[in-house]
């Protein structure tokens, strides 16, 4: 199952290694040289004001945005312009979006089956089995035959999580997974994410859910203006922020 470019000894390399990553949009520097290592099995929460570059950062990790400078190494494979490498990395990295991005013309089940069938050539029966298992994991097995438009926002996001899980990725990226949800649905999605965290998968999560960060994150990262300002374990991060910018940010969102 493992793509051809993966090194044999995965345990020896960090899941994600970022060194001096730069991303520009015209003259604006969205990422101004970011260094970050994520260990295997680690759960990292990234927060920061809007426009701080946190979404851009995780979108660079699976090459939805191409970085302009620095190095990005995922599972020991460096991300270059090469299409094959990009495909291999994407097989290993699942992503959950703010706006779910479910395929509206496919049922929840078919949403989950599409990538395994196309990428791994699973038979229909195998794909159904796999998809049902992951829908079960997000507690939506009973909604499998429904189209996304008939599901609530929280249900849609959980299907999106199941869809990402169906590729059995070693790394999961979450791009503000709860910020498009109505408040009463945030909890069900965070609940599923906490269960996932307990399963040992590597997670990088951009979110403003500070309760989630406290309970789940091994490490919190604060970004502002395209750079990492401060990082540390969750307790110290919230109780004793060092930088003025983080104190200011926390004061605003925890108010």
């Amino acid at each position: 199952m493992s793509p051809r470019t993966l090194p044999a000894d995965l345990a020896a390399v960090p899941a994600i290694h970022l060194a001096g990553v730069v991303k520009r949009y015209g003259t604006h520097r969205a990422l101004a040289g970011v260094d970050l290592d994520v260990r295997r099995g680690e759960r990292v929460v990234i927060c920061g004001p809007s426009g701080s570059g946190k979404s851009t950062l995780i979108r660079c990790i699976n090459a939805l945005e191409r970085h302009d400078g620095g190095r990005i190494v995922v599972n020991g494979v460096e991300l270059t312009g090469d299409e094959g490498t990009v495909q291999d990395i994407r097989q290993e990295v699942g992503m959950v979006f703010q706006h779910f991005n479910l395929f509206p013309h496919l049922t929840a089940l078919e949403n989950c089956m599409l990538a395994p069938r196309l990428n791994r050539g699973l038979s229909k029966a195998q794909a159904v089995k796999l998809a049902m298992a992951h829908l079960e994991r997000v507690h939506l097995a009973d909604q499998a035959r429904k189209y996304p438009a008939r599901l609530s926002g929280g249900q849609q996001q959980r299907v999106a999580i199941a869809r990402a899980l169906c590729m059995e990725p070693r790394i999961l990226l979450f791009d503000e997974p709860t910020s498009a949800l109505d408040p009463e649905m945030v909890k069900e999605v965070l609940g599923v994410m906490e269960e996932l965290a307990a399963s040992g998968v590597t997670m990088v999560c951009v979110t403003h859910e500070m309760g989630f960060a406290r309970r789940v994150a091994d490490r919190c990262v604060f970004m502002d203006r395209g750079e990492i300002v401060e990082e540390g374990d969750a307790a110290r991060f919230f109780e004793a922020p060092e930088s003025e910018r983080l104190r200011h940010f926390l004061a605003q969102i925890l108010r």
């Binding site: 979006f97 599409l114 196309l118 990402a164």
Partner: peptide, 24 residues
């Protein structure tokens, strides 16, 4: 966003066209 979601799932461009962009 749907094209991006397909890309993030590692689906090839050809398959994205056939199974996501064209049906929609």
């Amino acid at each position: 966003g749907l094209v991006e979601a397909s890309e993030a799932l590692g689906i090839t461009r050809r398959n994205i066209f056939l199974w996501v962009r064209m049906p929609l």
